[in-house]
């Protein structure tokens, strides 16, 4: 009985740890270890093509990057892309959420169809938008021509519009889902009493709707900003950062430095600057969301 008892309680003690162990091991091997290694590399001058041993140069990579006009231009470009994309997605998502907050026949199906872009592979989205935007046979160009009356080469004339448009197409439904979830969380009796009290639309929104959906809106903006900031696949396949460097956002720039020019140390440093920005943004957002 006693020995049985001890094996029993030992099982209770070890069981939870046994369950977690594989996960922790894998994460350590493929995230923590590489990150530390990359951090180390960012203090070296190293070029795979040139070969030879990495040379320790301290913070020079960082110094050079932060003083480079080109890097700052990438930051501004990435920021513009994030700002345009996320704000338009918010507006469209907001409108769609209010539309689908109404109960009507076919609502479920409509929601499913509208959210389809969310699961479509970014690579497919990028490549196919190249076809849609194509200057000669793309249907979007064709529509643009019908509207403006003259041929429009969207990808070369308005590349920023193209990548924002594509992102809006894929991710507006994401905003919609969050805001719709928020709307559905509003207690029915509160809406009813606001009807009885004959609140104006504005007052109803401010005092009844907004307080409930605010946390979800904050979360949606957080997720979307982070993801838009990191966007790589779609832009890379649509424009490859071009024409020139017109759509070369940070992640594409890092990719280029690392895997086309093979200035590995420098790329690692830029990647870490990128990471720090993301971490900062996350924290600012979370703090704002919490204070509200």
């Amino acid at each position: 009985m006693t020995s049985q008892a001890t094996t029993g309680s030992r099982l209770v003690r070890i069981f939870p740890i046994l369950l977690i162990l594989p996960a922790v091991a894998l994460v350590t091997f493929l995230v923590i270890f590489p990150l530390i290694w990359a951090l180390g590399l960012s203090f070296y001058s190293y070029n795979v093509i040139r070969g030879g041993a990495p040379i320790f140069i301290g913070v020079e990579n960082y110094y050079r990057l932060l003083n480079s006009l080109d890097v700052w231009r990438r930051f501004v470009l990435t920021g513009q892309f994030v700002f345009y994309a996320v704000s338009i997605e918010f507006l469209i998502g907001f409108g769609l959420a209010h539309l689908f907050y109404n109960q009507f026949r076919g609502r479920r199906l409509a929601i499913t169809l509208v959210t389809t872009p969310l699961l479509v592979a970014p690579v497919a989205v990028g490549i196919f938008h190249r076809y849609l935007f194509d200057a000669t046979f793309g249907i979007y160009s064709y529509i643009a021509q019908l509207i403006t009356g003259q041929p429009v080469k969207i990808l070369s004339q308005y590349p920023m519009f193209a990548i924002v448009f594509m992102d809006v197409w894929q991710w507006s439904p994401f905003m919609m889902l969050f805001i719709l979830a928020g709307l559905e969380a509003i207690p029915k009796h509160m809406l009813e009493s606001s009807e009885i009290d004959r609140l104006s639309m504005l007052a109803k929104f401010r005092y009844v709707i907004w307080p409930t959906i605010r946390p979800l809106v904050a979360l949606a903006l957080l997720f979307r900003t982070m993801d838009a900031f990191r966007t790589f696949d779609t832009i890379f396949t649509l424009t490859e950062g071009g024409p020139g460097t017109a759509t070369e956002v940070l992640s594409i720039q890092i990719y280029r430095i690392a895997f086309q020019f093979f200035r590995t140390g420098e790329a690692a440093a830029l990647a870490f600057i990128f990471l720090v920005i993301i971490v900062l943004l996350t924290n600012i957002y979370l703090r704002l969301a919490r204070r509200e």
């Binding site: 977690i20 996960a23 922790v24 994460v27 493929l30 995230v31 590489p34 990150l35 290694w37 990359a38 590399l41 795979v48 982070m226 900031f229 990191r230 790589f232 992640s251 890092i254 990719y255 690392a258 895997f259 590995t264 790329a267 690692a268 990647a271 870490f272 990128f274 990471l275 993301i278 971490v279 996350t282």
Partner: peptide, 24 residues
């Protein structure tokens, strides 16, 4: 702590780990 750490990997830009992993 572990759960938060695991969640934070969602925020991690792939390109950041891509460089070291490529060489590994």
């Amino acid at each position: 702590t572990l759960m938060f750490f695991i969640l934070s990997t969602r925020m991690l830009p792939a390109i950041v780990v891509a460089i070291p992993i490529y060489f590994f």
